[in-house]
Simulated assay, not measured.
Amino acid sequence: MQLKISRTSTVVVLATLALLVFVYLWVPVVHQAVHAVVGILTLPDVPQAIAAFRDYLLGFGVWAPLVSGLLMVFQSVVAPLPAFVLTFTNGLLFGWAWGAVLSWSSAMVGALVCFWIARALGRPVVERLVGGSQSLEVSDLFFAKYGKRTILITRLLPFVSFDIISYGAGLTPISVRSFLIATGLGQLPATLVYSYLGQNLTGSIQVLFWVFSITLALFVLGWVVGPGVLRRLRAKHTPTDVKKTS
């Protein structure tokens, strides 16, 4: 189905993106902050990344929740950074309940922005943003197989990119309301678990070890199971005539 792209939406999104790029390039404080956060969130040692991000947020005092929320949106839209580090840290700083609310709501905003960009600018632009057409293959396969249920299903799978599905959903006829409901429900379990674990990061070496072990196990499980799932989806959506000739 060919989606009709609103010219007004396209202009608004392009103007907003241009403004953000301008701020990043010409406002030194913003430029330095972005690079500092990227450096923290890409640290290979998870406990070290959480501790560093906690210290970074504490430097903003009462503005820490706002900064954390903005960074969650930033990583959703622009940078493929590990959001679970932000969620852990929010639970550590603000308690599991308020930390979960902050992480959940800011991730919802990030998902909606990705959806809005895709809906307003179309597939060619999204492919450039996510690194090529192959990056959207996972989204295409899941939507072809599960339709609207894709969003809820993939939010529960650790090997499927949160951002790619948000962009991919914007390229389908799904309504904003359905997208937000499925996203909100699908991301809730992981948000609650990570927030609770983050709250219990009291400095205990044993706790840090278990948090790191659980996180690593989830990602290893995702990367082991994920390729098999994608192979089955590809096989089911191979054209019939191709199958017969092979």
Rank of each mutant, 00 (worst) to 15 (best):
N90Y: 00
W96K: 04
W98R: 09
W98Q: 08
G99W: 08
G99I: 01
W104V: 14
W104G: 10
S105M: 06
S105R: 07
A107G: 15
A107T: 15
V109Q: 06
V109E: 04
G110R: 03
G110A: 11
L112C: 14
V113H: 07
V113Q: 10
V113C: 12
W116A: 13
I117P: 04
I117M: 07
A118T: 10
R119M: 03
A120H: 06
G122C: 13
G122V: 11
G122P: 12
R123D: 10
P124T: 10
V126M: 01
R128T: 02
R128E: 11
L129D: 09
V130M: 09
S133I: 12
Q134M: 12
Q134K: 11
S135Y: 05
L136H: 05
L136V: 07
V138N: 06
V138C: 08
D140N: 04
D140F: 01
L141P: 05
F142W: 04
F143Q: 05
K145A: 15
Y146M: 00
Y146E: 01
G147I: 00
K148E: 11
I151T: 07
I151N: 03
L152E: 14
L152G: 09
L152Q: 10
T154L: 12
L156T: 05
L156Y: 11
D163C: 11
D163Q: 14
I165G: 05
S166C: 15
G168A: 06
T172A: 11
P173R: 03
S175N: 00
V176T: 13
R177M: 02
S178P: 00
S178F: 00
S178A: 00
F179M: 07
L180I: 08
L180Y: 06
I181Y: 04
I181S: 07
A182Y: 13
T183S: 15
T183D: 08
